[in-house]
Design a protein around this nucleic acid. Structure first.
Lengths: 233, 233
DNA sequence: AATTGTGAATTCCTTCACAGCC
DNA sequence: GGCTGTGAAGGAATTCACAATT
């Protein structure tokens, strides 16, 4: 186990590996090689071994990795062995969809609060039964509910102010859906999910198709682990 | 203008620059330097000049870039001078939210069709008036409506099949929200938006806060250009 | 025989630093 | 003087390739 800094590219991939391991475990598969994993993701097998080797020697030469054991390690590395309490700020279409979203690990992440500015929304309840609270109450509720991660789903013009407020309240991790580049205080991690950037970048590739090939594509973002129940997500 | 391959990191940044230029133009600002732009995004100014120089010499030494002109160039480079017709497959919470989403450039991207498998949904209309069509009709409608970009918002287990079908119908650009790594055919560009990966990666940073600093964070994804109307997105 | 863990090589991306131009 | 465009340098991420291990 080394003490180098781990890149975000690596942590993103660890999450992808974990999802795959969960599937393998469900399927009753006991061991897996870096080569087999690599084929699933169009990655190089050495990449996977390197990613894992940052955190320890989890493999067995000549055998591969024990699925159950590696899965447990990855959960621990990613901090998914404890429940992370999250809240959504901005209960528009997107905020509501996120609130109802089933695609993320419900054991690891628990949605405990919804916030909005709009007086007509405050006090009403979303489909999942959570009351929509005034953003005035962010500091109080973040503390009382021990919220660790905030999802920002407000319009661009309001996003920086939300970030500042939740930072004030001690939040260190933010997932920002507003189409704006935020300026976080040191020690605060902001990840961005920007639909416009994704679409516009796709548009570029339509105009310049020559550049394209089959490449790995988890440098960017989202994913699920287990098979869902047949409903659209 | 060179003929090198352009990395996706660059195209993502171009999209971010474009949004900023639109704001600057609205604000009546006529020129901007790479230094000023760089400060907006926590980027190095040489990065911005390099990104732009792949496509031409748009700047004026001693002056900077003409906002209006550079904006027009970027729109053209990103292929946003023509309307891109898009469709959503999977009309669950997320698909519906995407359909109602106001955050992306409505001039450049026009949503023209919704698809779902669920018999109870087929034939009904979403809030925006679009009828939900059977996924059986994907090839026919993609052709008739000249759809160029597909947003996949189905559960993980169904996503690869959707990708295969739309690929068959000639689609070259896909934005995938299903939490699974897809396997595209050569020449087909898939971008991923994976909520689980984002959240789990944030969880990692909660466990290992030492690693964090103020860094540029558009390596990943989404954004808006102009100020919205005060509603949550 | 198969597969890991890892130094070395390579490729890719970013930043520096400065000549050239306005 | 200020700012671009870019070659060169530096740094980061990926891939190679092989010794080590079961």
């Amino acid at each position: 186990m080394k003490t180098e800094k781990i890149s975000e590219l690596t942590t993103n991939r660890l999450s992808v590996y974990l999802r795959c391991l969960s599937e393998l475990e469900s399927a009753g598969i006991e061991t897996v090689s870096s080569q087999t994993l690599a084929e699933q993701f169009n990655l190089n097998s050495a990449q996977i071994r390197k990613d894992l080797a940052y955190f320890g020697e989890f493999g067995v030469r000549g055998v591969g990795y024990y699925v159950k054991e590696l899965r447990r390690h990855l959960q621990q590395i990613l901090g998914l062995n404890v429940e992370r309490r999250i809240a959504i700020v901005g209960v528009g279409n997107l905020g509501l969809a996120l609130a109802k979203y089933q695609g993320f690990n419900r054991d690891a992440f628990r949605l405990v609060a919804l916030f909005d500015d709009e007086p007509s929304k405050i006090g009403t309840r979303a489909a999942n039964g959570l009351e929509i609270l005034s953003t005035e109450r962010l500091p109080e509720v973040i503390e009382r509910e021990t919220i660790e991660i905030i999802l920002i789903a407000v319009p661009a013009f309001a996003a920086q102010q939300v970030l500042d407020r939740v930072t004030e309240a001690g939040i260190k991790a933010v997932l920002n859906f507003a189409p704006i580049v935020l300026n976080p205080k040191p020690g605060v991690k902001v990840k961005n999910v920007d639909l416009s950037v994704s679409l516009e970048s796709l548009s570029y590739f339509l105009v310049h198709p020559s550049e394209e090939a089959v490449t790995a594509n988890h440098l960017d973002l989202f994913r699920i682990a287990s098979v869902e129940n047949g409903q659209a997500i």
